[in-house]
Simulated assay, not measured.
Amino acid sequence: MKINRMLKVCFTFLMVLVAGCAKATDSASSAANISGINHVAGQAINSFSVNGYGGSLTGNSCCIMLPDKWRPGLKANITWESDPNANEPIPMKKKGFGYDEDAYAKHAEKYQQHSTVVDIPKYDQACGLTVHFLPCNQVKVTTSCYGYGVPEYPVKEPLNMKEPASCPVK
């Protein structure tokens, strides 16, 4: 009698486990890395996010959920903070380590908050999402499986671009 009961419990547990796995493989979205590339000389991107998921300029961050199959109207809502004076030196503390708090606070007052919504270009396979930060607070995104700089990569803008004297009005 105990063996039958144990078999039923094991069978039920196995069915729940298999049902959970089946549902996971039927998922319409998959996790993908987020990365960013700053193309603007003298400006730093302090932080950014895409559709609420945080990204990194120092490599890949995990993760953003992207549909397994691209569909028209797929958007990336991008928010970011930039430091337009990234090359401006900030004095260090006279004693101890780190920056002088008052000088750092004055520098940080110049940080700028930005946001935009852009189309995610058509893809057959999403190999992560890369955000390219361009002059005039413009961005481009790609899901390309190629790396920046190779001929097949869709974003061709160079690094270290200078901000123009005036930007087009949106």
Rank of each mutant, 00 (worst) to 15 (best):
A22G: 11
A22E: 14
A24I: 10
A28S: 12
A28E: 14
A28P: 00
S29Q: 12
S29D: 12
I34F: 10
I34W: 08
S35I: 02
N38I: 06
N46R: 14
F48M: 08
S49R: 11
S49T: 08
G52H: 08
G52D: 09
G52R: 08
Y53E: 09
G54F: 14
M65Y: 10
M65N: 13
L66Y: 04
P67L: 06
D68C: 04
K69F: 03
K69M: 07
P72K: 12
A76T: 04
N77M: 08
I78M: 05
W80E: 02
S82Q: 10
S82Y: 01
D83M: 00
A86C: 05
N87F: 12
E88Y: 08
E88M: 14
E88S: 09
P91D: 09
K94E: 15
K94W: 03
K94G: 14
K95Y: 13
G98W: 04
Y99G: 06
D100P: 03
E101Q: 14
D102V: 15
D102R: 11
Y104H: 13
A105T: 15
A105D: 15
K106G: 02
H107S: 02
A108E: 06
A108V: 02
E109N: 07
Y111G: 00
Q112C: 00
Q113N: 10
S115G: 01
V117D: 06
V118F: 07
I120A: 11
I120W: 13
P121Y: 08
K122D: 12
K122P: 01
Y123N: 07
D124A: 13
D124W: 01
A126K: 05
C127W: 07
G128T: 05
L129A: 02
L129D: 06
T130D: 02
V131Q: 04
V131K: 02
F133I: 00
L134Q: 05
L134R: 06
L134A: 04
T142I: 05
S144N: 08
Y146K: 13
Y146L: 03
G149D: 04
P154S: 02
V155C: 11
K156N: 06
K156T: 07
P158K: 13
